[in-house]
Amino acid sequence: MNIFRLTGDLSHLAAIIILLLKIWKTRSCAGISGKSQILFALVFTTRYLDLLTSFISLYNTTMKVIYIGCAYATVYLIYMKFKATYDGNHDSFRMEFLVVPVGGLACLVNHDFSFLEILWTFSIYLESVAILPQLFMISKTGEAETITTHYLFFLGLYRALYLFNWIWRFYFEGFFDMIAIVAGMVQTILYCDFFYLYVTKGQGISL
């Protein structure tokens, strides 16, 4: 554990909690892509199956359970509890355009051709592009509420901090995972355009 990973994890947690609270407090999921949230629930489910097979630390287990629980709670709020406020017409990105190629890539490029390893690889690749339905929705409606931009900022910041974590771990621990690093770079690059808007416009974005 180093400072970049810890702040990365906390940034990720902040993003998830901000989104949940926003939906809960406003009783609305307007402007939020349910499809991105389904993809994130799928990401956590496929990555954290190792909860059943190995124990790493109390911190690790606790965070995994919180991430999975929050992901499914968010999907529940969007598609069940506050379904009437869900803007399905503007959430038109096709999930299969991400899931199918990513699934294929995970089968082709992985560390080990085993069930759990392929699901882990799938989750890493899928996470890198899971935000695309949300970014697509914002580009379609041409605007994002302030709180939604805070959510995206912390979600993007998390993977950027992980990049620093991997540099740290390479130098001090000899840790090196090409799959995670390349996917993490792709993921961070996808947020760059948004980061620019967030910093220059500060609050709610309107294109």
């Binding site: 190792d50 790493i56 560390h111 974590n165 000899g174 840790f175 090196f176 995972d177």
Partner: peptide, 10 residues
């Protein structure tokens, strides 16, 4: 030695 792909991250 390089320690490749430990699954201790989130």
């Amino acid at each position: 030695s390089l320690n490749i792909n430990p699954k201790d991250e989130l």
